[in-house]
Design a protein around this nucleic acid. Structure first.
Lengths: 221, 221
DNA sequence: CCGTAAATGTCGTCG
DNA sequence: CGACGACGTTTACGG
């Protein structure tokens, strides 16, 4: 990894055009060819960048870098003044371990359907359909089939997604009628309104409470 | 901006939990308090990070950094061995200039509706409804009202969005019936199929051609 | 390689 | 400050 702190001017041409006027920035060259240009603020997103796979060509005469990828996108970096230029050998990273994403909510809810109500039984998780898998398919105490869509944050998109599944499932006379449940840690008002308008019920999930009922906790770290 | 290249172990606890085993990485401390941890590969997204506003507390005894934000999320960085540690004064960045995003497509199409067909007239751009603004509302040569949804890349979500607008607009007897047009630089096959199934027509837009018809080109850089 | 869905999404805008 | 949609979304996963 090469870290170049320099006054520079940058232009990207590709899916759109973007230009950075002359200023001092950090230019990060990663060993896979990717390049990131960071200012001293903002969030993790660089001002400008090129994702791998790509090739860096350095012109030492003109102090210009041109980074290109296969689709013909280019990132041109004109270096006016170098403040610092250091390279480091970092090696391959062992990578990130995560816990608490949607997949975990799905596993925990499938193991314990009680947030849905009494007497629910699991048909299967990731129930396959022609337009993608339904997160959880189960049956209520009364024997109704119930499709559950799980989100960390419940927004309109998720309701639309569940609606498409329900439409398809209800065309199958073997399992119709199917009722929909929208389950999320947090449900936005507009999503709740749309769901209820379509006869889909909403429940909010408590990840910590779900994890408390799980006998296989403390697995990751 | 402080650039620390070091062997480290990192743990994030917040919306989820995430852990990075011991390895050599770049730790970037920005002047607004934000912290980014990068490996020597992958794309622009750091392995782990904390977004501003947040506070960094350094414990020089234990060689540990703890970064906290208002919501109580924490990022703990345990430093085992320092390879390099440099700070730089970068100043405020003048920021990025962009050209070619959806807003430009919308402006250009509103100025010249000919891609829709002959004799179309603009009612207004960003036509307000209760569930959000319709990109372009116009009338055909035959006097039909037409709602246009513009995307750079046309996918299913965009068709769903236009469908919701059409449903709402068609409830208003003053402007009903309203026909839908899905316009994008590129339309995914599944989105096209869904649109046509719902009686929505699809057109692909050529940004360069649209810009060619625009008298106010070459404004940005 | 395409297509879909998730994301500690982030970022802008508008109320 | 929340809601909502765009993003050079990126990233992971499945066919």
């Amino acid at each position: 990894m090469r870290l170049l702190v320099a006054e520079c001017t940058v232009t990207y041409r590709g899916r759109l055009s973007a230009h950075l006027p002359r200023a001092t920035r950090l230019i990060m060259f990663k060993s896979d060819g990717s390049v990131l240009i960071h200012s001293d603020g903002g969030s993790y997103k660089p001002l400008n960048w090129m994702s791998p796979p790509c090739v860096v060509r350095e012109n030492t005469e003109t102090a210009e870098f041109v980074v290109t990828n296969k689709s013909g996108e280019t990132l041109s970096i004109e270096v006016h003044q170098v403040h610092s230029d250091n390279s480091h050998e970092l090696g391959v990273d062992p990578g990130l371990i995560k816990d608490g994403v949607e997949a975990h909510l799905q596993i925990l809810l499938a193991e314990n359907l009680s947030p849905l109500g009494q007497g629910y039984t699991l048909v299967r998780r990731e129930y396959p359909t022609a337009i993608g898998p339904v997160d959880i398919l189960c049956k209520s105490a009364q024997g109704e089939t119930v499709a559950v869509e799980i989100k960390r944050r419940g927004e309109i998109d998720g309701v639309e997604q569940l609606t498409r599944y329900l439409e398809l499932l209800n065309r199958d006379p073997l399992i119709a009628p199917v009722r929909g449940v929208f389950a999320a840690q947090e449900i936005k008002p507009q999503a709740r309104t749309l769901a209820l308008d379509r006869g889909i019920s909403c429940i909010t999930l408590d990840y910590e409470a779900l994890k408390g009922t799980d006998d296989s906790s403390l697995r990751l770290f």
